[in-house]
């Protein structure tokens, strides 16, 4: 395609290091195969979330008895959780930037902070769920309003929480590989792909926080 001039030959050899197949620059420019794969996965995953949020929106729009979420959900706590995810996103890009400069110590530090952020988020979510279950809100029933309110809430936040959990495991793997020196040469392709997943989790939470908690 027409975008081949974007790529410098030296750069392409550099990013192609971790790929078994060396691709000629095409419509995707110099993006590695793994990165394109992760992007396509994230796009379809985004559509899954879109489907859940769409179902939520329709159930809510058709139900005049739908309660105001702020009466039952703790907005302050989830705002803190949002902030933690934003922080862990910025530490993720900083880890990548440090790795590109071959600053191993900072890369490991920022990766550890990112993992810590993800774990704190999961902790907050466990606390929140426990609290809600004690208030009579479970997946298939809700003591104080329409049961769809509880079901859609647990479906969307639970699916997202599963993503956070997977992301933490994924980042731990990356951290382990960084620890044994796999990324000492400054080739951050794998870290960048993991970062894509992690930022996507943050991006989705930004939307979930608005649509489920605030509106």
């Amino acid at each position: 395609m027409g975008s081949t001039s974007v790529v410098h030959s030296g750069h392409s050899a550099h990013t192609g290091h971790n790929n078994k197949v060396e691709r000629k620059p095409d419509i995707f420019g110099s993006a590695s195969n793994g990165k394109i794969g992760m992007w396509v996965f994230l796009s379809t995953d985004g559509l899954t979330f879109a489907g859940f949020l769409l179902g939520y929106g329709i159930l809510r729009a058709r139900n005049p008895e739908w309660p105001d979420p702020s009466h039952f959900l703790g907005i302050g706590l989830s705002a803190i959780a949002t902030f933690i995810l934003i922080c862990s996103s910025v530490t993720m890009v900083l880890a990548q930037a440090a790795g590109e400069e071959k600053n191993r110590k900072n890369m490991l530090r920022f990766l550890a902070l990112t993992i810590l952020g993800g774990m704190s988020f999961l902790g907050i979510q466990v606390y929140e769920y426990t609290h809600l279950v004690h208030e009579g809100m479970i997946f298939w029933d809700f003591a104080k309003g329409p049961p769809q309110f509880a079901s859609t809430f647990f479906l969307v936040t639970g699916f997202h929480g599963f993503h956070v959990f997977s992301g933490v495991v994924y980042l731990m793997t990356i951290f382990g590989r960084a620890l044994v020196g796999k990324y000492n040469d400054g080739n951050m392709n794998e870290v960048e792909i993991a970062g894509l997943f992690w930022h996507f989790v943050d991006l989705v939470w930004i939307l979930v926080f608005t649509f489920i908690y605030l509106i």
Binding site: F28, G29, A31, S89, V93, H199, D202
Partner: peptide, 16 residues
């Protein structure tokens, strides 16, 4: 903002 800056979508090609 997250997609464009943190996920470096601004550095990808138009096709992607």
């Amino acid at each position: 903002a997250v997609g464009w800056i943190y996920m470096h979508l601004n550095h990808e090609t138009k096709g992607l």
